[in-house]
Design a protein around this nucleic acid. Sequence first.
DNA 1: GTCTATATGCTGATAGAC
DNA 2: GTCTATCAGCATATAGAC
Lengths: 195, 195
Amino acid sequence: MTRSKAYPKGVAKRDEILHTALDVIARNGYSRTSVRQLAEAVGLTNAGLLHYFESKEHLFAEILRMRDEVDAEAQRSPGTSSLDALVSTARHNAKVPGLVQLYSRLAAEAEDPAHGAHEYFRDRYANLRTSVAASIRQEQEAGAIRRDADPERLARLIIAMADGLQTQWLIDPSFDMAAEISYLISLAAVLPDEQ
Amino acid sequence: MTRSKAYPKGVAKRDEILHTALDVIARNGYSRTSVRQLAEAVGLTNAGLLHYFESKEHLFAEILRMRDEVDAEAQRSPGTSSLDALVSTARHNAKVPGLVQLYSRLAAEAEDPAHGAHEYFRDRYANLRTSVAASIRQEQEAGAIRRDADPERLARLIIAMADGLQTQWLIDPSFDMAAEISYLISLAAVLPDEQ
DNA sequence: GTCTATATGCTGATAGAC
DNA sequence: GTCTATCAGCATATAGAC
């Protein structure tokens, strides 16, 4: 509550902007969210808002970075592998379509190397792949996942699938993302009995 | 060459616009391609070009529809299943990054129900899923794919994965899309010997 | 450091003349 | 079928007030 050196006005405002921006996107959709709207929602002019961020693109990447941290926090509890995390994240995401849309749209825009979020996504994919691959290796040692699967390759495939499912779900939300991811993992499991 | 009733000027011009548009996107990237540029490339003003299409969004969807038809044609040859088609399409796509970018970016934008290409993608996903599921069923009967896998669900997962791989590849083209899809299909195959 | 005001040059789209 | 003219909206940049 009281302002300290560790939490100066600038950081608080930045944080407020990020949270408000996510709210506005969730309400109005990514396509219909301009910097001016975000600025207005937080009581600033557009130039005032962009004082806190390098660009609109960087602002959006910061929202996702914030989300990543919250998610990582939630999964630091013992006994959750990255694979379980993918399923529970998918389950949670189904309740926040605005956030899913932000992620999906920004990832696509960031395909352009000149986009402000390009590096964020490049690094995010690399780190996520390492983390998921490590979990796969663990599960293999525990005998839960077939040992003939290449952890790194399988990790990339699972991450790609999670992303692709989000796109399909946003275009036609007639299925359960978490259930489908969970189904894939069950297919990667050691078969009880090969018929 | 000679203009006939079956190939009037309007259709020819439309076709020219679609092909030129794809060229320009491939050269300049999706982000940096405006209607005005496309119009100029084909010798029209932007208003003149938009006379042929409902909107920019519809124009782009038409390019992809054209691509779908070409691809479908190429795979009508005997002995190619939808699964083989996915792999060979991925192999071909790696040579036309501009087209991959168009597909990936437009799919993301079309998540908005108000987007001009929303219905195109909704229908495309549904049709593709049906087609891939049928191929999976065939392979299962032939004993090439595990019989315990649900064709419809697996089809959705494979399509999602192909899309997600395209995003990852456009952000960091340091892997072989076709090889990864092929690898997934091999994992779905009946195991020679469960260890 | 924080912010307003203002300006530039894009964008897709439309109305109506020819 | 194609044009000109025009529009509202956009992200972004800069100068400078406080």
